[in-house]
Structures are given as structure tokens and as C-alpha cells.
């Protein structure tokens, strides 16, 4: 059942993105920025946690989930370390994903080259 819910929630979040692509002139980079910021915002107002509880990876895999991770990280770190946690918490929580993107990106650039599209 959790798989179905993940599919549904993830799919719907992507549909929101597609609506923005179709009806605004936002580029994909702007949509990613909007979604990550929106993820932080929705977490702050307490709307994203229920979505994560319901949809699992359907809510954490989209970029809004990245925002959720950042916001939760900052919150937890502030509770544990005070104001310095605001600076370290978010980035620390997301560091796995960021480092993975850097390392795999670097490896891909070593192994592969861009190809012309047909």
C-alpha cells in the first residue's frame, strides 16, 4: 500500500511542476528552486510532515522533500546546539545527497561526454 501512496503523492507533486512548466515561462532551474523553497516553507508551517507520513518516498524523493530535509535538519540542530545549529543543521542533513551529486557528477564527467541529440 505504501508503494501506491508513494506513487500517488510523488506523481501529484510532479504534476504540479508540469503545470508550472506548461502555464508559466519558468525554466526547470527556477522550478527546482521554487520546489526546494516551498518544501522548507511547508515543513515550517507543519504541512509537509503529514505528507511524508502518508506518502513516504513519494514526498521525500521530490525536491520539496529536499527542502523538508533541510528544514528538519535545521530545527533538530537548533534544539540540540542552539543558534549555531541554524547554520549547520540544514546543510548537514542534506550533505549526503549533495556530496553524492558532486562525486557522481565528477565521475560521470570523467567517464562520459555530452552527445548531440537527434
Amino acid at each position: 500500500m505504501i508503494y501506491f501512496r508513494a506513487f500517488l503523492v510523488g506523481g501529484l507533486i510532479c504534476v504540479t511542476g508540469q503545470l508550472l512548466l506548461l502555464f508559466t515561462d519558468m525554466t526547470s532551474a527556477r522550478i527546482l528552486v521554487l520546489f526546494v523553497t516551498l518544501g522548507v516553507l511547508l515543513t515550517v508551517v507543519g504541512l509537509y510532515q503529514p505528507l511524508v507520513d502518508f506518502g513516504g518516498a513519494g514526498a521525500t524523493v521530490p525536491l520539496t522533500g529536499f527542502g523538508y530535509l533541510l528544514a528538519e535538519g535545521a530545527k533538530k540542530a537548533v534544539e540540540e546546539e542552539g543558534v549555531l545549529g541554524a547554520l549547520t543543521g540544514g546543510a548537514a542533513a542534506a550533505s549526503g545527497g549533495i556530496s553524492a551529486a558532486i562525486v557522481f557528477g565528477y565521475l560521470a564527467s570523467l567517464l562520459f561526454s555530452s552527445k548531440t541529440k537527434q
Binding site: G11, T16, S28, L32, T64, A101, G105
Partner: peptide, 19 residues
């Protein structure tokens, strides 16, 4: 957006300029 919005789209936007 189906492949832009998930974290894989974020990774794609890091890997593609690197390449």
C-alpha cells in the same frame, strides 16, 4: 517535470553541466 522534480532531476542538473 516528472523527471525534473524528483531528486534524480537535481542530480541530472549537476551531472549534465559537469559533462
Amino acid at each position: 517535470a516528472g523527471s525534473i522534480v524528483p531528486i534524480t532531476g537535481f542530480a541530472n542538473s549537476v551531472v549534465s553541466p559537469a559533462m
